[in-house]
């Protein structure tokens, strides 16, 4: 059974339609959940509003642990959107993990695609650099590359790329690995009656673990985003 990806090329841009579809679905789910939860706002919160206020406070806690709120407050919305988007994206691949239509893989986590995660990671690093230069000045920004010692310069250059790579690939690796194992277990379950019985318990265990991983990775991505941004914008080093 051959498998592929549904790709189309428009001009010089190649689109993986499955990735685009899953990104859109993720964004739609996040948007619908968020809007439904905040549609009926009350001073005394109930139900979903409580949950979203908890998320906001959680992200506020992440930011506060890296920089003071005066600097970090502007990244609050970025943080909440990132954590929601990545968490939903991570979980999205679980229920229908690997749906093939005409040999093409359509349903997967958008975050199981290295292009998506690396794009998000690069976006974070570009934002960090932009805000670093805007808030501290270009001179200070370039000075950080030769601090504390000038010979650190090559290491600092490598660090920039290493940060971006690890940020994106950590997320990709975790989710991708989870989906592969889930796919293997699904293949085992589909191989016969014995295989089905044998696959039930490991599949349930791995699904539970994947849900846990999905939330943890969303948290780690947001946390590291704030860490990297605070490296660039905060004044205390």
């Amino acid at each position: 059974m051959s498998h592929g990806v549904p790709e189309i090329t428009l001009g010089f841009l190649t689109f993986n339609l499955s990735t685009v579809l899953m990104l859109l679905i993720t964004a739609a789910i996040v948007f619908i959940i968020a809007v439904v939860a905040t549609r009926n706002l009350k001073l005394k919160p109930t139900g979903m509003q409580n949950f979203f206020e908890w998320i906001m406070d959680f992200v506020r806690g992440i930011i506060n642990s890296n920089m003071d709120w005066k600097t970090g407050g502007r990244f609050h919305i970025l943080g909440i959107t990132l954590i929601m988007f990545i968490a939903v994206g991570n979980l999205l691949g679980l229920p229908l993990g690997g749906v093939y239509i005409y040999g093409d893989l359509w349903w997967k986590s958008p975050t199981a695609d290295p292009v998506v995660t690396m794009t998000l990671a690069s976006m974070v690093m570009v934002l960090a650099t932009y805000y670093g230069i805007r808030m501290r000045g270009a001179k200070h920004y370039f000075k950080t590359f030769i601090q504390p010692m000038p010979f650190m310069f090559p290491l600092k250059i490598i660090e920039e790329f290493a940060n971006t790579l690890t940020l994106g690939l950590r997320l990709y690796g975790n989710i991708y690995a989870g989906e592969i194992l889930l796919g293997l277990l699904a293949g085992l379950a589909g191989s016969g009656i014995l295989g089905f019985i044998g696959a039930i318990v490991p599949t349930m265990a791995w699904l539970g673990f994947s849900i846990f991983i999905g939330f943890i990775q969303a948290f780690i991505f947001t946390m590291l985003t704030m860490v990297y941004i605070s490296h660039k914008v905060s004044t205390d080093h």
């Binding site: 059974m1 051959s2 498998h3 592929g4 990806v5 790709e7 090329t9 428009l10 010089f12 841009l13 190649t14 689109f15 993986n16 990735t19 685009v20 990104l23 859109l24 964004a27 959107t81 988007f85 690997g98 093939y100 093409d104 893989l105 997967k108 958008p110 199981a112 695609d113 290295p114 292009v115 998506v116 794009t119 998000l120 976006m123 991708y176 989906e179 592969i180 796919g183 293997l184 293949g187």
Partner: peptide
């Protein structure tokens, strides 16, 4: 092979980058 989710992709998907950024 069927478990390698992106095995079919050959070129760098510039469109996905744009899509991810725009959607996000």
């Amino acid at each position: 092979d069927k478990f390698v989710l992106n095995a079919g992709a050959e070129a760098f998907n510039g469109g996905d980058v744009v899509a991810t950024l725009v959607i996000f």
